[in-house]
């Protein structure tokens, strides 16, 4: 019995190595190829598509940055993502506190309404949102992008905030209230501090979602000065551009910030996505 078992588990180990290395290669090779190709000029890419750059140059980056207006797009991305994420975290935490620690029966209804949002996609509301924004003058403005960013971040954020704050002992809140603190003070002085781990998780997940968001900016803005990085990259490096070197440079510009972000936040991201599934 034993030797057969060992053979079997050796087979599994071999399979595991082959399978995981294959998956890793398929994940990494395209990204590595994109990176080194961005240092090659058009002619070299056409002649030696797979080759390492012979005369590495940053000309592609220079041209893509200037012609694609990447600087403006990067600043817009920071503004949209930054404000969107900050308010999603702040509002979801406040809502999470009110829905779990006040004991009102209406809380259950509101909580249900928020979780419903997990299943609603941007497509379902983009047409009316566009009409509404053109009517009230929010179309093609930064606020007109940030508000939907906050809204679409809320369902998951409220869910995570509620499940975390529910675990904070009621006595902590009650003791502070007996000592004369108002509920709003309790929120700012206690909840915000105690719930900082879930705030970090929400912030990282929301940041990722906002940074890569495409359709809201694409539909709700028209000016080049309002574009975020994904929209700018799509219009610059899209199907009509035939300069491959510049395309690669634009794609790398879009990728680098997220790789840096990933190196810094991968633990939170991995635990955050894992938790998201646990908490349903």
């Amino acid at each position: 019995m034993k030797p057969m078992n060992q053979n079997m588990s050796r087979g599994w180990r071999l399979f595991a190595y082959v399978f995981l290395f294959a998956f890793t290669a398929i994940t990494l090779f395209p990204l590595i190829w994109m990176l080194y190709s961005s240092f090659k000029l058009q002619g070299e890419i056409m002649l030696y598509p797979l080759g390492w750059p012979r005369n590495p140059t940053v000309k592609n980056y220079h041209d893509a940055w200037r012609m694609g207006n990447m600087g403006v797009a990067a600043i817009n991305s920071v503004i949209y993502t930054g404000f969107g994420t900050f308010f999603t975290v702040f509002f979801s935490l406040a809502a999470g506190f009110s829905l779990t620690k006040f004991g009102y029966s209406s809380s259950r209804v509101y909580f249900g309404v928020f979780t419903l949002g997990l299943l609603i996609t941007v497509n379902a509301v983009i047409t009316p949102l566009f009409i509404m924004q053109t009517r009230i003058g929010l179309y093609d403005t930064r606020i007109g992008v940030i508000i939907p960013y906050i809204a679409f971040g809320l369902p998951m954020a409220v869910l995570l905030a509620c499940s975390y704050i529910r675990g904070i002992p009621d006595s902590l809140v009650e003791a502070a209230v007996i000592d004369g603190a108002t509920y709003v003070q309790v929120f700012f002085r206690i909840i915000v501090v105690v719930a900082s781990p879930v705030m970090a998780t929400i912030a990282v997940l929301t940041f990722l979602r906002n940074w890569n968001e495409f359709i809201l900016v694409f539909i709700l803005t028209s000016g080049e000065s309002m574009r975020s990085l994904p929209v700018a990259i799509n219009s610059f490096a899209g199907r009509l551009n035939v300069n491959y070197g510049m395309q690669f440079a634009a794609l790398v510009i879009g990728t680098i910030p997220m790789i840096v972000f990933y190196i810094g936040a991968h633990n939170l991201l991995i635990s955050g996505f894992g938790e998201g599934a646990l908490k349903e």
Binding site: W33, L208, N212, L229, N234, L269, I270
Partner: peptide, 20 residues
């Protein structure tokens, strides 16, 4: 490593694979 693509925007992924 396998989790890395999750951070890259769908637009970049799409254009990268078009090139591939």
């Amino acid at each position: 490593v396998i989790f890395l693509p999750i951070t890259i925007s769908a637009v970049v992924v799409a254009l990268l694979w078009n090139r591939i």
